[in-house]
Every structure is written in structure tokens, then in C-alpha cells.
Design a protein around this nucleic acid. Sequence first.
DNA 1: ATAAACCCTGAAGTTAGCTATAGGGTCAAG
DNA 2: CTTGACCCTATAGCTAACTTCAGGGTTTAT
Lengths: 134, 134
Amino acid sequence: MRIGELSKQCGIPVETIRYYEKEGLIPAPPRSASGYREYSKASMSFLSFIQSAKAVGFSLKECRNLLSIFVTRDAHTCAEVKDLSEQKLEDLQTQMQALANMHQTLKAISDACCGGDESAANCAILNKFEGSET
Amino acid sequence: MRIGELSKQCGIPVETIRYYEKEGLIPAPPRSASGYREYSKASMSFLSFIQSAKAVGFSLKECRNLLSIFVTRDAHTCAEVKDLSEQKLEDLQTQMQALANMHQTLKAISDACCGGDESAANCAILNKFEGSET
DNA sequence: ATAAACCCTGAAGTTAGCTATAGGGTCAAG
DNA sequence: CTTGACCCTATAGCTAACTTCAGGGTTTAT
């Protein structure tokens, strides 16, 4: 299968597949006589692995680590993999908490504003931004 | 006040202050005979405005808009300012929802793994990443 | 008067994850 | 046999928000 076909199958742009190869996420496939990449179905596992891991918040760098564990999984433990998952779960919660804090703060600021058609000369939101130690 | 002093007062690096000026967030201050920027206390309002707005999730571009409204606030309405706040509140919620979805998905995947010291050859997490349409 | 600490500009580098461009070779259909 | 779709490489560009660097002038304290 050539790169265009693989791209269609997994919904990842051709350039992105080549980019992943360059970044060492997926192995370089064999080439045809004319230099075209020739992929097997196994290549799709790698790409769907990346898609899945990205979808739950892993960075490409982290995907690369996960993939390298995956290909040598006999030499790794479940504990190791689960640790990475749980670390990421914590990351996600930390990020959610940060957003929640921003939301709460902004909500309080926003609620103090009348939102009317009068001039913003004394707008509570602008005043808060100017003066407070938010 | 020179830039180093201003930097110390508001806790923003000197380079960042110059960067904000270049990006049009803060007005260019007058210069001394030798070309040094001379700031007044009013400059601190702008910087703390930026800090506050950034802290609740506004991008620098959005900060620039907010600041331009701020400096001409007599010609703007509370409604306009509040609309921007509420839009940002929605943004934050959307981002939180996205993170919550990731967290939920990863939690389910992670929970399926024993986390033990045995080989990851059949690790549920790796299997999910490889095979599923998460 | 000299050294440390400060200031200036303009340009380039950083991170992440691509996307686009230039310039060229290959393959399949009609 | 040529046209269009496909493939290749290497390099540059994109966004965001800075940070660093190179090279040079100024102020302040001793």
C-alpha cells in the first residue's frame, strides 16, 4: 500500500504521516524500486495507536514513548504503562482545575457587570482588570 | 521609572514588556535623552490589566482588543465588554468539556489494566490504543 | 576612571504539530 | 505518448508567547 492509500484508510494527511516518520514515531517502511514508501497493514496499527493516544491527551513525544514501549512490550510491565496513564490522568485533572479556576474568577468578574447599553466608562469588568490582583 | 524598575514592580520580565509594546498592547512611553523608556505609574495599570486578563484565559490578541476598549471606554458599552467575557466563559467551558471527555475515555482504558509487574505483552491499555476506534 | 549593572535595537531561536512550497520523478489511463 | 494523479526531498512557514543573542551605548558606584 502506498502512502496515499494509507492516508485514506486512517484519515491522516500524507504530509502528517511523513512527518511522523521523520519524528521517529513510526518506523520507516521499505521502499519500492522507484523510492515509494510501501506500507503493510501493520503500519495502520501504529497510526491508529497514535490517534488513540493523542485523543486522550498524549503529546507526540509521549506517543513516541508509548509506541516504543508497545513495540517492545514483552520487555515492559503493565505497571509501567499504567503509571504513564495515571500520570496523564493527573495532568488532565490539573488542566481542568486550572480552567475551572479561570472560569470561576471570570464568572465573578463578569457577573458584576450590568451588561447594559450604557457607556463602559465605569464597567465593572474593565475596572477589575485594571485594578485588582486577580 | 525605567523599564527594569517597572519590571520589578509588576513581575513581568523586561523583554516581555518590550515585546508587549512591539505588539501594540501597551503604548510606547516617552524616552529620556539617552533613549531610555520612561514609564509613569499609569503604565502599571496596563500591565496589570494584561496580567488579569491573561489569568482568566484571554490571549494577547484578545488582551489588545480589551485594552483598546479600555482606553476608549467612554465610546463603548458594558454590553460589548460583557459579551466578550461571556464568550470567553463559553470557550473555557468548551475546553473543560474536551478535557473531561479525554479524562473519561482514558480512565476507562486505564482501569482495564491490571497495573501489575507482569509483562505488558497483553496490556489492556496498549491493546486499546492499538486496536480501538477511541 | 573603570567596572558592574543597566538600557537599546533587530533578528533569530524556542515549542508543538503540523502545513505549504518548490522542484522534480513515476505510474496508469486513454 | 501525454496528461493527470501520485510520489519524492528539503526547506520554509504557520500560531502563540515569549526568550535569547549579538553588538553596542549609558549610568552608577567605588
